[in-house]
Structure formats: structure tokens, C-alpha cells
Amino acid sequence: MNETLRLQRHEDLSMMELDALEKLFDGEYLSDYGRWSPDAPYGYSPADFHVLAFQGPALAAHVGFQRRVISVGTDDVVVAGTGGVLVDHRFRGTGLGGRAMRHAQKAMRDEAGVDFGFLGCRKDVVPFYESAGWLEVHATERCLSRLDRISVIVSRGGPTLICSATRDASEWPHGDIDLRGTPW
């Protein structure tokens, strides 16, 4: 089957691409979280950039990221806050998720010009991200609640992962993390 991976800026998504994204996300999350919205996906921060992975005409995978300045310790750091990582169940186990993630990491460097990729995830998916070059960092993280966008949430459990973009992951500063907004 013909595989195509492409980067789309959020504002350039076509109605067809938005419909395909809604179908992909609702196919996975509708019963637990309700309908997907491109501007507030399940209350998380929306993506500025979308990696869309097609198998033939079908949208088979997605990786989204938003460019944002966060603080780590006393440093301001430009990150690609990554979320909406999803592979259609029919294409899981094919390596498509890793290819989409690597495409996103290249876009983080070449298109978004961020220092690092950044994401939070469940413990059971850490090995997937590590296989794509992400590294776990241990720090206390503050963010605004995705439910009310006002309350401050403090998390010490992670997992939180970063990847190299325009800076090498070994240069990640030490200290507590403030996302200065909602998570991705």
C-alpha cells in the first residue's frame, strides 16, 4: 500500500483532512471522551503542526505538536509540545508510528525551529517513544488543568520525555518545569 507522510500547519488543514482527523480520533476516544475538536482536543492544547500519515487514501496515523516557550528551572526553553499521537488500530505494529514520530522530529528541527520536543505520556508507552529517540527526564511539572484551564496541576510522577531538535537532549536544563499553559 502507498504510504505518505506529510506535515501540515494547523491553519492549512483542509476540510477533508479535518474530517479524517475527527474520524481517526473519534474511532479511538469517542466513547470515553466525546467528540474530537481541532481547537481543543479533549481539553488539551491544540497542535500548530500535524504530521499526517496516510496508507493509500486512509489517514492511518497522526502526531501533533505546538511551539511554546516553557520554563525549566530558571531557563526559558522553546519546545514542540507533542500530543495527539495515534495510529489507527489496523496499522499498529507496522512501524508506522515510529516513522510518523521521526517525521515530526525532523519537522521540529527544520520547520518549527524548537530547542526540544516535549511530551507527557503513560508509563506503558514510554518504550515506544524511547525507540524513536526520546529520553525520560525527571522533574516536577506544573501546568494549567485541561478541564478548567485555570487550576494549576503539579505532577511529580511523569513520565515526561524530551527529544533533540535544534539542541541536543544532553543540553536539557535542570529544574522544575512550568508548561505555561495546558498540556499537549
Results as ranks from 00 to 15, higher is better:
N2V: 12
E3V: 06
R6Q: 05
R6F: 06
L7K: 06
E11I: 11
L13A: 03
L13W: 00
L13C: 06
S14W: 00
M15N: 11
L18Y: 07
A20F: 09
A20V: 05
E22C: 14
K23R: 15
F25Q: 05
G27D: 02
E28G: 01
S31G: 04
S31N: 11
D32K: 07
Y33P: 08
Y33V: 04
G34V: 05
S37H: 15
S37W: 13
S37D: 14
P38Q: 14
P38G: 11
A40F: 12
A40M: 07
P41L: 00
Y42I: 04
Y42M: 12
G43K: 03
D48R: 03
F49C: 07
A53H: 08
F54W: 11
Q55M: 15
G56Q: 10
G56S: 08
P57M: 03
A58N: 09
L59R: 08
A60N: 06
A60W: 06
A61V: 00
V63M: 07
V63Y: 10
G64N: 06
G64D: 09
F65S: 09
Q66I: 06
R67V: 14
R68D: 04
D76S: 05
V77Y: 01
V78H: 12
V78Y: 00
A80N: 06
G81K: 11
T82F: 08
G84R: 07
V85R: 08
D88P: 00
H89A: 08
R90K: 13
F91Q: 02
F91R: 00
L96P: 00
A100S: 15
A100W: 13
M101R: 00
A104F: 10
A104K: 12
Q105H: 04
K106N: 12
K106Y: 10
R109K: 10
D110A: 05
E111T: 12
A112G: 07
G113E: 13
V114D: 04
F116C: 02
F118W: 14
C121A: 09
C121L: 07
C121R: 02
K123T: 15
V125M: 03
V126G: 14
F128L: 07
E130G: 15
S131G: 12
S131Y: 04
A132E: 13
W134V: 05
W134F: 13
E136V: 15
T140Y: 00
T140P: 01
T140L: 05
E141K: 06
S145N: 04
R146I: 03
L147D: 15
L147G: 08
L147M: 08
D148E: 02
R149S: 06
I150G: 02
I150S: 05
V152P: 03
V152M: 15
I153S: 01
V154N: 01
G157N: 13
P159A: 03
P159S: 01
L161G: 04
L161F: 01
L161C: 03
C163V: 13
C163A: 09
A165G: 02
A165T: 01
R167E: 07
D168M: 02
D168F: 05
A169E: 13
S170T: 15
S170P: 07
S170D: 12
P173W: 00
G175N: 14
D176E: 14
I177K: 05
D178H: 06
D178F: 13
R180W: 07
T182D: 02
T182P: 05
